[in-house]
């Protein structure tokens, strides 16, 4: 079974995790409908290396995973804001 490393709980089978989607920054809410629609709907979804939110569900630990969406390799995981630690 595929495994993932939770920064707090360690290596676990992938079924213990849920993906929360791309890490993206929110535009100013006053940006107007077009920009906002782009933010909430459009995705960069060609295969690439992405930063995504993931959650270890038994402990409710949210963290970031860098993942190759073509090969499904997880390159690294870290708590939000602690990429270089």
């Amino acid at each position: 079974m595929k495994q993932m490393i939770c920064p707090i709980n360690g290596t676990r089978p992938i079924v213990e995790f849920t993906c929360g989607g791309d890490l993206q920054s929110m535009p100013d809410p006053h940006c107007g409908d077009t920009v906002w629609a782009d933010y909430i709907f459009n995705r960069n979804n060609a295969p690439t290396i992405k930063q995504e939110w993931w959650c270890h569900t038994p402990s409710n630990t949210w963290f970031i995973a860098k993942r190759n969406t073509l090969t499904d390799e997880v390159l690294c995981t870290y708590l939000y804001g602690q990429e270089d630690v």
Binding site: N9, R12, V15, E16, H56, T57, P58, S59
Partner: peptide, 12 residues
């Protein structure tokens, strides 16, 4: 202490 799943249920 281990936070994991058993038979599909989240457990401590």
């Amino acid at each position: 202490v281990v936070l994991t799943t058993m038979i599909g249920v989240a457990v401590t």
